[in-house]
């Protein structure tokens, strides 16, 4: 897959990388079971710090989209469907919109919790 990052952007590089992988899973160009380049490898490719890439991979792991294996890089999990990845994208949009409105992290969580309680 293609990783294209903009170090000049206000979005942290790690988040950019996470968004790229999420997008690739969402549009079906990356499938479950596919191996992403190891963090060191990707960092060397893009000329960024390895911790930056690891931060991005860690986010994807927490979203359940990838699995990190020591020394074997990152593998897209079986649970990572395009719909699941799109859910992550929707959450990103929600957060971005709330931040634009000046909401704090607590307030954003409250918004989601209130929505869930309404069901």
């Amino acid at each position: 897959m293609l990783f294209r990052v903009d170090p000049g952007s206000s979005v942290p590089l790690g988040d950019q990388i996470a968004a790229l992988v999420r997008g690739a899973i969402a549009d079906g160009s990356v499938h479950a079971g596919e191996r992403l380049p190891a963090a060191r490898e990707l960092a060397a490719s893009l000329g960024v710090n390895v911790h930056t890439v690891l931060r991005g991979y860690q986010r994807l792991k927490e979203e359940g989209l990838i699995e990190l294996r020591r020394g074997r890089g990152a593998v897209v999990t079986g649970a990572a469907s395009p719909a699941r990845a799109r859910l992550g994208e929707t959450a990103e949009r929600l957060i971005a919109e709330a931040r634009n409105l000046g909401l704090s992290d607590e307030e954003i969580v409250t918004v989601v919790r209130v929505g869930l309680a309404g069901r």
Partner: peptide
């Protein structure tokens, strides 16, 4: 040509 504005960095990788 891939659109790659100055300052942006990209890498492509596949097995």
């Amino acid at each position: 040509r891939l659109d790659l504005p100055a300052g942006m960095s990209a890498g492509w990788s596949r097995t």
